[in-house]
């Protein structure tokens, strides 16, 4: 029996979270990847505190971008492989909303842990104290946008050859604007300029992506399941 829309929405989120918890290693792997990329930057650039604090925001954002990108393939791929995608398309809830529920749970299991661990990384990178709160706000506004935009790419590559590399070619260019505003917000805070304009831009990007991305990903999923 089809449930009420809200019930279905919540049950999709619950299913996704349950799957993420059962495969607990996934979220840990994303966070470890995030850490390792930052450490690679640290080792590559060298431990000079002045340089590190200058580029800290950029390193954290690039690492977050790569981590989210790597985690994108598990958003739709397992459902596509085991056939549950067809059931989700047939459900009483519009596919756009199901996609939104999936993206939300994806963000809770990947973007959110990244936000929690980011102050620690900012500490590693010798970021100035005024940058911390702005970095957190920028990540809270930016990482959901990354998940939303990435979902389009994840839906488009279902069934493609060499899908991993393909995904990065498709979505990393689309991630660029989010990263630019995210980094410039933190840089503004560090240089005592108002970080409000870039943060507002991040918010605008989030709202736009919230409206358009589920729609585009749903269209891509439908053609993949055809």
């Amino acid at each position: 029996m089809p449930g009420k829309p809200l019930q279905v929405f919540i049950s999709v989120i619950r299913r996704e979270l349950l799957l993420a918890i059962r495969h607990g290693a996934d979220s840990c792997m994303i966070v470890s990847f995030f850490l390792i990329v930052v450490i690679l930057f640290l080792l590559g650039v060298g431990p000079e505190p002045g340089i590190l604090s200058r580029i800290s925001a950029g390193i954290i954002w690039v690492s977050a971008l790569l981590s989210v990108m790597l985690s994108m393939d598990r958003l739709f791929q397992p459902d596509y492989e085991d056939g549950s995608l067809d059931l989700l398309i047939l459900s009483s809830l519009p596919l756009e909303l199901i996609v939104l529920a999936k993206i939300f749970s994806h963000w809770l299991t990947t973007g959110f842990p990244l936000i929690i661990i980011s102050p620690l990384l900012a500490l590693f990178l010798n970021m100035g104290t005024p940058g911390y709160s702005t970095l957190l706000i920028a990540l809270v506004l930016g990482t959901p946008t990354l998940s939303l935009v990435g979902a389009i790419g994840a839906a488009l590559i279902l069934g493609a050859r060499r899908s991993g590399v393909l995904l990065s070619v498709l979505i990393l260019p689309l991630f660029i604007p989010i990263m630019i505003f995210g980094v410039s917000a933190v840089d503004a805070a560090l240089t005592n300029v108002s970080s409000k304009p870039p943060l507002l831009m991040l918010g605008a990007l989030l709202l736009t992506a919230l409206v358009l991305c589920p729609w585009a990903s749903a269209a891509a999923l439908r053609q993949a399941a055809e």
Binding site: I152, L156, I157, G159, A160, R161, R162, S163, L166, V169, L170, P173, L174, L212, A216, A219, A220, Q223, A224
Partner: peptide
């Protein structure tokens, strides 16, 4: 975006799948 479009178009064994996926990407 152009490169992504071209790569995506040719990434599927089934030509029509590639065409539709690339079409959605181009609209985005």
């Amino acid at each position: 975006l152009y490169l992504g479009y071209i790569v995506l178009y040719n990434a599927f064994d089934d030509q029509s799948r590639g065409a539709r996926a690339a079409a959605i990407l181009s609209i985005v």
